[in-house]
Design a binder for these strands. Structure first.
Lengths: 237, 237
DNA sequence: CGGAGTGATTTA
DNA sequence: TAAATCACTCCG
């Protein structure tokens, strides 16, 4: 087979490949497109196995920096990453979060999630969330990538939904968000929870319960909660 | 047999049908494919047996605009035909390379190329071009087949364009220059450059440099070049 | 229906 | 503008 020049990319995690293809015809002949390929092993290991994704040992193909950024999430900071050259360029700080507010994904939904942002009342739950750290395996998906909003979203989902919280699972959501987004799940990538994390969490829950006991003593708690609820309903109407 | 919704297509000759099929699954679920069917040849006479046989009751299926265009040939001008909607879109030539001939940039370049014809001022460059021979592999395409104009065109393309100079590459240009010509390239057939030609050219460049040294001594050179430049800018403005 | 290749649109 | 991103075509 005629292999195209697919080279390693030192700026990305091991196994990632970079390819440059020259356009051979049309109005844009002579211009080039740069693609990246995820490590084959990572791509073939699909834990859910709910769908056969690909036999291609070459990994998944990425065609733009935003797409790459969405996939890598907080694993790799692509702020200084130059997509065309494939190298890190210090001093070139791009704002990659701006674009997310305008893509179809963001407009499609999450009205309620957006509303949660800026909700910094005296709600006790808010205080708890504010001091929490996002687990490393958890990645936001959608227009607002702030950990705070994601936390709120998950918290809400846990309260309002009677089904398990899994996050957005299908890769198809990336291509066809309007069709494939699961509105019953918070906008984060699918994640897994280890036994270790569960044990850690059990401890945290115990501690949190102690804090909550104290909080319940505080004056005005009931009133604050009621205010919060009204705010939510007012904007959903 | 399950008949699918095939509708008439007024933009095509009588008998042509249009069909739209929605994709049901996969990454592209929800997207649709559009097909056209040529007028059914219900019966075809068998010369030997004087018997009518069914040949192609459904007509031929067409899956793309190029395929359709190839079949219809000069019968129908599909320049304004929108394959997806099945309608003619006059004024909105955002399909095809038709737009190529009409957008401001390409138009300006074409005009500039045309202007070079008949430009026989005292410009030194002109003198050089006049005494040059076109390489044998270089062939003019289009209404003006003079070598002189072609040379000027290539020279200007080398200066103006930031993309490689390839000439007209598509075979379609030979069949239908009015539609398929690539205005971003000089009006010549695609050509190749051999190593031998490159070596020859290196010698010529050396000789030309010697000539240029002498030329620079000549009185009035700078003024002539400046006049030429002003003429060009004045007309492109 | 997939996807490489290219046009169209948006961004810097 | 040009470059980057997105969307679509078109053929397997």
């Amino acid at each position: 087979m005629m292999e195209k020049k697919r080279s390693d990319c030192p700026a990305l995690p091991p196994g990632w490949k970079k390819e440059e293809v020259i356009r051979k015809s049309g109005l844009s002949a002579g211009k080039s497109d740069v693609y990246y390929y995820s490590p084959p092993t990572l791509w073939k290991r699909n834990p859910k196995k709910e769908k056969k994704i690909s036999n291609d040992p070459s990994g998944k193909k990425f065609r733009s920096k935003p797409q790459l950024s969405r996939y890598l999430g907080n694993k790799v900071d692509l702020g200084c990453f130059d997509f065309r050259t494939g190298k890190m360029m210090p001093g070139k700080l791009h704002k990659n979060k701006q674009r997310l507010r305008h893509d179809p994904l963001s407009l499609a939904k999450l009205f309620w999630e957006r509303r949660l942002k800026g909700l910094h009342s005296s709600d006790v739950t808010e205080e708890v969330l504010r001091t929490m750290d996002l687990p490393k395996g958890l990645q936001s998906v959608g227009p607002d990538s702030s950990d705070h909003t994601l936390l709120s979203a998950i918290a809400s989902a846990l309260h309002m939904s009677s089904t398990p919280i899994t996050g957005q699972t299908t890769v198809a959501a990336e291509k066809n968000p309007a069709i494939w987004l699961n509105a019953s799940q918070p906008l984060c990538r699918a994640f897994t929870v280890t036994d270790e994390q569960i044990r850690e969490q059990e401890l945290k829950v115990y501690q949190a319960r102690r804090s909550l006991e104290d909080a319940l003593m505080a004056d005005g708690l009931a009133r604050a909660a009621e205010n919060t609820r009204e705010q939510l309903e007012g904007k959903t109407a």
